[in-house]
Computed example of a mutant assay.
Amino acid sequence: MSESYCFLNGKIIPEKDASLPLSDIGILRAFSVYDGIASFEGKPFLFQNHYERFVRSATALGIAIPYSNEELYEALCEMLQKSHLTERANIRAVATGGTTIAGIEFKPENSTIFFTAVNFVPLPKEFYETGAKLITHEYKREFPEYKTVNYITGVLLQKRRKEAGAVEILYVKDGHVYECATSNIFIVKNGELVTPHKDVLPGITKKLVCVLAMKEGIVCREGDVSVDDLFAAEEVFITSSFKDIVPIVEIDGKMIKDGKKGLKTRQIMSLVQNYLDSRQGLDLQTRV
């Protein structure tokens, strides 16, 4: 089995040799941000988009990212090659505030930055072929437009998700639909794609879907989505860097339309898969 490497504070080292101080504020106070990036053929996918989101999340918390996009792109390519992750892989990026001051403060310039990667493990084929289920939970993330490491609610709900045979947990609150624990959501309403726009993470795959759809003449817009809209939708699907496009045919035991993967969802799945197969988005210049 190949040895796994990681990027830690400017160095690429074997993962088994990596460590963080117990006084890191990311450990003591969960004060850190996160990003998830797909890679293909040993290169991060749409890295410019992910880098910008990573920096935006870190900046919101006052955490410094002391590396340029070029430096991190080259480092990740080297890390993936050393780990022999030359097929599809999942990269996880974390930035913390570094060593604490008196257990509660930090210096922005003392940030801890690390990246790890593992082989991509796809969801069961039937989720893509015949559709998957969601369960809902009344919740809205704190700092929802930034990708922090606060996944406490999502982690605690995994047992319930598995018992329900669901692929994801959908966060709703006060009659509004927001996002899933690790995915964005779209509905099809009057033949148009609609995705929540407020108090949600600006997903990279979500953005790719909108760009590709509009090029094909499919209307795609961001707007408010109510729970009533959700259950009245013609189609529903979710998007994620680690899942791509997953059709949703049932939510909380209620069937969406006729319970089958819809035409618009099929079109979007095909558009995204063709984009992935073309290996666009693997160079540093490409962004959506």
Score class of each variant (00 low, 15 high):
residue 149 V to C: 13
residue 52 E to T: 05
residue 141 R to M: 04
residue 127 F to N: 08
residue 47 F to H: 06
residue 237 F to A: 10
residue 186 F to R: 09
residue 236 V to T: 08
residue 194 V to L: 14
residue 21 P to C: 10
residue 131 G to S: 11
residue 267 Q to H: 06
residue 29 R to H: 07
residue 58 A to E: 02
residue 162 K to W: 08
residue 172 V to R: 14
residue 266 R to I: 11
residue 199 D to N: 14
residue 34 Y to R: 15
residue 173 K to R: 15
residue 169 I to T: 11
residue 164 A to S: 15
residue 133 K to F: 12
residue 4 S to D: 14
residue 142 E to G: 12
residue 85 L to C: 06
residue 18 A to E: 08
residue 198 K to L: 07
residue 79 M to Q: 07
residue 173 K to Q: 14
residue 238 I to R: 03
residue 112 T to F: 06
residue 243 K to W: 08
residue 260 K to A: 12
residue 216 E to C: 03
residue 49 N to E: 08
residue 16 K to Y: 00
residue 201 L to T: 06
residue 5 Y to M: 02
residue 280 Q to F: 05
residue 31 F to N: 04
residue 249 V to R: 00
residue 189 K to F: 05
residue 268 I to M: 11
residue 161 R to F: 01
residue 145 E to A: 09
residue 126 E to C: 01
residue 233 A to Y: 07
residue 149 V to H: 09
residue 171 Y to R: 02
residue 33 V to F: 03
residue 203 G to A: 12
residue 6 C to Y: 00
residue 133 K to R: 15
residue 216 E to A: 13
residue 53 R to G: 11
residue 271 L to T: 07
residue 217 G to N: 08
residue 117 A to Q: 00
residue 3 E to R: 06
residue 11 K to D: 11
residue 186 F to N: 08
residue 284 L to P: 14
residue 74 E to I: 06
residue 43 K to L: 09
residue 101 I to R: 04
residue 194 V to T: 06
residue 164 A to W: 06
residue 149 V to I: 14
residue 264 K to P: 01
residue 118 V to A: 12
residue 114 F to D: 10
residue 248 I to W: 08
residue 76 L to F: 10
residue 201 L to G: 11
residue 84 H to W: 02
residue 51 Y to A: 05
residue 84 H to T: 07
residue 236 V to W: 07
residue 102 A to Q: 01
residue 19 S to W: 15
residue 242 F to P: 09
residue 110 N to D: 13
residue 239 T to Q: 05
residue 14 P to K: 02
residue 208 L to H: 03
residue 147 K to T: 03
residue 48 Q to P: 02
residue 125 K to F: 12
residue 230 L to T: 00
residue 77 C to L: 01
residue 227 V to M: 13
residue 36 G to S: 10
residue 282 L to G: 04
residue 228 D to I: 01
residue 132 A to W: 15
residue 264 K to E: 09
residue 157 L to N: 04
residue 106 F to V: 07
residue 244 D to W: 13
residue 39 S to Q: 12
residue 17 D to L: 15
residue 185 I to P: 01
residue 77 C to A: 00
residue 260 K to I: 00
residue 268 I to C: 15
residue 201 L to K: 03
residue 82 K to G: 06
residue 129 E to I: 15
residue 199 D to L: 06
residue 163 E to Y: 05
residue 239 T to K: 00
residue 242 F to M: 13
residue 255 M to D: 05
residue 135 I to E: 03
residue 7 F to Q: 03
residue 228 D to F: 09
residue 187 I to P: 07
residue 67 Y to H: 13
residue 93 A to K: 11
residue 212 L to N: 03
residue 83 S to M: 04
residue 203 G to F: 13
residue 31 F to D: 01
residue 248 I to A: 13
residue 203 G to L: 14
residue 248 I to C: 13
residue 200 V to F: 04
residue 265 T to Q: 11
residue 218 I to A: 09
residue 103 G to I: 07
residue 57 S to G: 05
residue 156 L to R: 10
residue 220 C to H: 09
residue 93 A to F: 08
residue 10 G to Q: 14
residue 256 I to V: 14
residue 131 G to E: 07
residue 40 F to H: 11
residue 98 G to P: 05
residue 65 I to V: 14
residue 184 N to C: 05
residue 171 Y to G: 01
residue 88 R to Y: 06
residue 66 P to Y: 11
residue 225 V to F: 00
residue 180 C to I: 05
residue 226 S to E: 06
residue 71 E to L: 01
residue 103 G to E: 02
residue 234 E to A: 09
residue 258 D to P: 14
residue 138 E to P: 01
residue 170 L to I: 10
residue 66 P to V: 15
residue 200 V to E: 02
residue 155 V to G: 06
residue 7 F to A: 05
residue 133 K to D: 12
residue 36 G to L: 04
